[in-house]
Design a protein around this nucleic acid. Structure first.
Length: 441
DNA sequence: ATACATACC
DNA sequence: TACTGGTATGTAT
């Protein structure tokens, strides 16, 4: 959903006060609140909120959050990450002083090989609905259209309409903070059934262009229009995409944005409307050169910061530094970053999704009363048994997750010898999962 | 196999 | 008053 969009837009422009100077390791021994705010996507320096009084908004957000347990927890995590970064930086400085001639040549070979394997034959489109939940609510209640409105609750918002965004309200923001920013904000509760209904409708339209489309979330789909283009030679990729978006609008009165690219690097960024990246290596590399790494799907706040601290801010810089990345990161991270730096994604769209887990979680007010906790366990085991039954599933590994009042997450897992699916069994195993241990230690 | 962190929407 | 909920994957032990 647009969660991601908002976060990704808050990217690092010139605002980084760390100067990514590799010699200032010791100066940066302290974690200031600004770092924590960035971790929470609330960095006062970063934008993403056009035409708004950023300073005022960020001040309000900071004032509301700073003393909270939530903020403290984030600060602890930030500290831990900072220690990790220090280690990586040390190694990096060492490597920078090595000639690395052999490794550099090797990296060139690897990249050349990957470049020659690049598949430019496919046209992949990524379709993403605009402010989906909020747009659906406006659709069903047009009175909301010109008023600041968000979908969710006082605890958490899923998405906000554009009117609300003017005030700095956005997805993944607690509703009570949003209300501080915009006291007239209307908060509408979620209606998942309705969103799913429309999601279905939209997918049916998309199926006309690629019956093997792949849903990425409730409001996002990948499709391969190569066959459609072959069957309809009078179309261009952007014409297909335009028509597809128009068709969605005609049938649902909802708008969508889309990216067109030769592989799934189209999930790198999604501005409004549609953007086409031509099936041409030079175009791709040009596009990537100045693309902030944080825009890459799969690089979140933490990885972005780690790389930024190494002086790597764009995919172009990432590509130049891959020799070092190979040494500094674990193999799978290295592989991922290498592909990202070259703008290589999957060229095939697989929609044979198989679920690997199913879960239910609920947040409740602080308590250490054993009875209340057991009641909660009962409640979630009922919901879980219900969901499991609906999908005709069974499993033999049960994980219990507990969030403390200080926002620490504890998990304990128990794998048993036979598959279970009934509520009573789920509850029993849930209780066995070192439950007492979690609570008291 | 288990615990925890990160990422995405 | 109040910072979600669901799924996947990576990393460390």
């Amino acid at each position: 959903m647009d969660n991601n969009n908002n976060n990704k837009n808050i990217n690092n422009n010139e605002s980084n006060n760390n100067k990514d100077n590799l010699c200032d390791i010791d100066d940066k021994n302290k974690i200031d609140d600004e770092n924590v705010l960035y971790r929470l996507s609330l960095n006062p320096n970063k934008g993403g909120l056009q035409n708004v009084d950023k300073e005022k908004i960020n001040k309000i957000i900071y004032e509301v959050s700073k003393g909270s347990a939530f903020f403290k927890n984030a600060k602890e995590k930030e500290k831990a990450h900072f220690e990790k970064i220090k280690e990586i930086k040390k190694k990096y400085l060492f490597l920078k002083n090595q000639p690395m001639e052999y490794e550099k040549q090797q990296m060139k070979n690897i990249m050349n090989k990957m470049e020659s394997d690049r598949d430019l034959s496919q046209y992949i489109v990524h379709v993403d609905m605009d402010a989906f939940y909020a747009s659906v609510e406006e659709l069903d209640n047009p009175e909301l259209k010109n008023k600041p409105m968000a979908v969710g609750s006082k605890s958490m918002l899923s998405t906000a309409n554009y009117e609300a965004r003017k005030y700095g309200v956005r997805s993944a923001m607690p509703g009570y903070i949003a209300l501080k920013l915009c006291k007239n904000l209307i908060i509408v509760p979620t209606r998942f059934e309705r969103y799913h209904e429309l999601s279905h409708q939209i997918r049916n339209i998309i199926a006309n262009y690629d019956p093997d489309y792949c849903p990425a979330s409730i409001d996002e789909v990948y499709l391969n229009i190569t066959n459609f283009l072959n069957d309809n030679p009078n179309y261009t990729p952007s014409k297909v995409t335009e028509e597809l978006r128009e068709e969605i609008y005609k049938q649902t009165r909802l708008t969508a944005s889309a990216g067109i690219a030769p592989n799934i690097c189209s999930d790198m960024n999604k501005p409004n409307g549609q953007t086409e990246l031509k099936n041409c290596t030079d175009e791709i590399l040009k596009f990537l050169k100045d693309l902030p790494i944080g825009k890459v799907s799969g690089i979140g706040k933490v990885a972005e910061k780690t790389l930024n601290e190494l002086g790597i801010k764009t995919c172009g810089e990432l590509k130049e530094n891959m020799v070092y990345i190979k040494e500094l990161f674990k193999p799978s991270s290295y592989q991922f970053l290498l592909s990202a730096s070259l703008g290589l994604g999957r060229t095939k769209i697989e929609n044979k999704w198989k679920r690997k887990s199913i879960s239910v979680e609920r947040t409740f007010s602080n308590t250490s009363e054993i009875q209340k906790l057991e009641d909660k366990l009962h409640e979630i085991s009922c919901k879980l048994a219900n969901d499991v039954k609906k999908e005709n599933l069974k499993g033999k590994s049960v994980t219990l997750k507990l969030k403390t009042s200080s926002f620490e997450i504890l998990t304990r897992c128990l794998t048993i010898s036979k598959y279970i699916y009934q509520q009573e069994d789920l509850y029993k195993v849930g209780k066995k999962v070192k439950f007492i241990y979690i609570i008291f230690f």
